[in-house]
Computed example of a mutant assay.
Amino acid sequence: MLEIKNLTKKYGKMLAVEDVSFTIPDGQVGILLGPNGAGKSTIIKSIAGLLKFQGTVLIQQIPSREIDAKKIFAYVPEMPAMFEALTVREHLEYICKAYDVSDSEHYMEELLERFELTDKQDKLGNELSKGMMQKVSICCALMIKPKVILFDEPMVGLDPKAIKELKETIQELKNNNITVLVSTHMLDMVKDLWDIMFIMNKGKIVGEYLKKDTNDKDIDDIFFEITGGEA
């Protein structure tokens, strides 16, 4: 479960996010939507521990700043950053050691094959394209078998095959009772995945919807109705 309670963030005198609260239960996929400047990036970076903020973020009811929460939380950033001198495989091995993941070899091979990185596993971080870096970042996040996982624009830069694999992976995470939050502007990519949707505008949550209550209403229509047609 991911719980956000009264999260507020200021940059100097500018209020970027004001008193935001929402919850995503175990085994559900939440999506965070909003036009540019709505505050999505601030929320994402706050959840990921990259920003100081007022309020509370709980990972499986554990404060996000505590080490026990970090052990069960994974984050796939919009702009992945690789270690230039590590190979693809060494990135995954590094994550396994950092998170004390045991019996990881089979799962590592499975992920490398699934995201078509097996023949790229000896490439260095500075030799990778944006799409390949994104795949490595996804694999690193999955290696720790998190209880809560956060994807920030995860499909940008991916080829169609990788997008298909990622969508199937998210469905599998959901089926395994993992909490998933996806922040994106690619509505078509998530319309078959979501269970609960949060729409942000001007630093606040302005709409919250359960898929089961929308009568199969198109996600685009809901989004544009709430945001007034802003892209």
Rank of each mutant, 00 (worst) to 15 (best):
N36L: 03
K147W: 04
L210K: 15
E165C: 06
V182W: 07
D159M: 07
M155C: 07
K211T: 09
D221F: 06
L142K: 05
P35R: 03
F223D: 06
H106Q: 15
D218M: 07
I24Y: 01
T184K: 01
L32C: 08
I72C: 02
I199R: 03
H106A: 15
G30K: 02
I199H: 03
S104T: 13
F73V: 00
V76Y: 03
G12M: 11
A85R: 15
L181S: 05
E3V: 11
E109T: 14
E18H: 12
I196C: 12
D220I: 10
A38Q: 05
K217W: 13
I205H: 06
A85T: 15
F198V: 11
A16P: 06
K191F: 08
H91Q: 06
S183K: 01
G30V: 01
P63Y: 02
M143L: 00
A69I: 03
E93L: 11
N176W: 09
L181P: 04
A162V: 04
M14T: 15
V29P: 07
K120Q: 14
R114F: 05
E78Y: 08
F83A: 13
E153Q: 02
A16W: 01
V76R: 00
N175G: 13
L158N: 03
F151M: 00
M79I: 15
G27L: 12
Q54I: 11
V17G: 01
I43Y: 00
D100F: 11
G30L: 01
V182E: 04
T87N: 10
D221L: 13
Q60W: 06
A16V: 07
L124Q: 13
D152G: 02
D119Q: 14
M189E: 14
A74S: 03
Q28E: 14
D26N: 13
I95L: 04
D122S: 15
V182H: 09
